[in-house]
Structures are given as C-alpha cells and as structure tokens.
C-alpha cells in the first residue's frame, strides 16, 4: 500500500514538473519572440529614419516623391514599432509592467519639463542657435533607461 502511494506521489510530481516545463517554454518563448519582434521593428524604424534624413541629399538628390515615400515608410515602421512595443509589454508579467510604467512615467515627466525648459532657453535667446528635437529624444531615452535600471535594482 505504502509503495503504491509513493508511486502515485512520484507520478504526480513527474507530471507537475513536465507541466511546469511546458508552461515555462510557452511563457518564455512568447516573451522572447515579442522582444525579438520589437528589436526588428526598432531597427527598421532607425534605418528608415537614417534613410529619410540622409537619402534626399546623398542618394536621390532632393527628388520630392522619393523623400515623401521615405518619410511615409519611416512613419509606417514607427507605427509597427509602437504595436510591437504594446505586444511586448503585454507579454510581460505584472512586476515587469510596473517597472516599465514607472520608467515611462519618469521619462515623460523629464521630457515634458526638460523639453519646455529647453524651448524657453531657445525662445528667450539664452542659448545660441535653435533648439533641436534630438536633444529631447536623447534626454527621454537616457531617463527611461535609468528608470528601468532603478526599477530592476529596487525589486531585486
């Protein structure tokens, strides 16, 4: 009787471990797939941005239809990247989503306040030259990455 019970327990444990392995593959596989998709879309968006920026001068010599096409392509890749990011976020667990949300909140706040201050510096002629949008993008990206790092450390 005792050995039968032991056999049943062993069988159940074996079944649970196999079930866990299957679930692990499903969840991790999905997250890895969505992360890879996001990387591809981001790469495509950055490449199309470079094409739309430098193409008119160095490739198609200011040909307007080509320039418009490159900008539309860049915007389309941008939409794809946003959708990939939404899918990526949805495949995260609740704590990872919380870390993302906090980092994005900080990046948005710093971007808004820093961006407006930077614009004020420009309009009041405190800085020489025009305010460049790329400065804001870099500021928000760095703040977002710092936010992610702090979040990861906090819940470690």
């Amino acid at each position: 009787m005792k050995s039968i019970t032991l056999l049943c327990v062993n069988y159940t444990l074996h079944y649970i471990k196999r079930y866990l392995q299957m679930k692990k593959q499903n969840w991790n596989t999905q997250l890895r797939h969505n992360t890879r998709q996001l990387a591809y879309w981001t790469l495509a968006w950055v490449a199309s941005m470079a094409l739309a920026s430098f193409g008119p001068k160095f490739i198609w010599q200011e040909n307007l239809p080509f320039t418009i096409l490159a900008i539309v392509l860049n915007a389309a890749f941008g939409v794809g990247m946003i959708l990939a990011y939404i899918r990526h976020t949805k495949s995260m667990d609740e704590m990872q989503r919380k870390i993302q949300l906090e980092a994005m909140g900080i990046a948005l706040g710093v971007g808004l306040v820093g961006g407006l201050s930077y614009a004020l510096l420009d309009t009041t002629n405190v800085i020489s030259g025009n305010a460049d949008i790329s400065v804001l993008v870099v500021l928000m990206t760095i703040t977002y990455l710092i936010g992610i790092f702090i979040g990861q450390m906090r819940y470690r």
Binding site: K17, Y19, L20, Q21, K23, K24, N26, W27, D93, E94, M95, Q96, Q152, Y155, R156
Partner: peptide, 15 residues
Amino acid sequence: DLADALAVSRQTVNA
C-alpha cells in the same frame, strides 16, 4: 519552478 507555474519571471517571485 514557481515562476514557471505562475507564468511570471523568477525576479518577480523573488520580489
């Protein structure tokens, strides 16, 4: 193991 069963990351279980 627990993280896999709950479909969350190991870091989340630890936290």
